[in-house]
Amino acid sequence: MVAAADAKNYVSKLGIKHDHVVQELGWDEDTDDELRAAIEEVTGTELLDEDSDEVVDTVLLWWRESDGDLVDTLMDVVSPLAEDGVVWVLTPKTGRPDHVEPSEIAESATTAGLTQTSATNLGDWIGSRLVQPKTGRPRR
């Protein structure tokens, strides 16, 4: 659990803004409810679940070592993502149960066709920012 002020700061670190559409996957009893509430407060909307078929600006993926195959999950989360959308893989910090090695996230992202651009500390969780590679769009 984090303090509400920290949670607001974390939302800012995630680049989530008012009117962003955020889909949350991997919720469980260990997820950070303060962070989730702060995201909803900033965006002005509820987090979408895995059953949503809306185009989203951000996918918030809570991921633990015991959750299975990260590559498969990342390939699934890309489909609802807006062209300039972001996937945040949130994993338990080093030393916490179910921690995921950063190298595993980077390798899984590459295999799924994503690029890891940064990582940020979110209290008991570490957020890894993944984006779709820029395509060679013709200039106008």
Rank of each mutant, 00 (worst) to 15 (best):
K134I: 15
W63P: 02
W88R: 02
L60C: 05
T94W: 08
R64F: 02
E24L: 12
G15I: 08
S108Y: 01
L90A: 05
G44H: 06
D33A: 12
D30Y: 10
G15T: 09
G136W: 01
D72R: 02
N121T: 05
K8Y: 10
V56I: 07
L60E: 08
R139I: 15
R140M: 15
K17F: 11
T135L: 12
R139P: 04
W62M: 07
H20M: 13
D30V: 06
D19Q: 09
A38M: 04
T135H: 06
L35E: 03
V11R: 00
L74M: 09
E46F: 14
V71L: 03
E40F: 03
G85F: 00
I126S: 14
T31L: 10
L90D: 03
V11Y: 00
S66Q: 00
D51C: 10
A4R: 10
G113P: 11
V55G: 15
I39E: 02
L81Q: 00
L25R: 15
A82M: 12
R129G: 11
A5C: 00
E83A: 15
V131C: 07
I126T: 09
V22P: 02
I16Q: 01
L114D: 08
I39Y: 03
G95A: 11
A38V: 07
D19F: 08
L74A: 00
K17D: 11
L47P: 06
T73N: 11
W88G: 10
R140G: 15
D32R: 01
V87Q: 05
H18K: 15
D84Y: 08
E41M: 07
A4V: 08
A37E: 11
D69Y: 04
V89C: 04
I126F: 00
M75D: 11
T91G: 05
R129A: 12
H20K: 03
E104V: 13
N121C: 08
S79I: 13
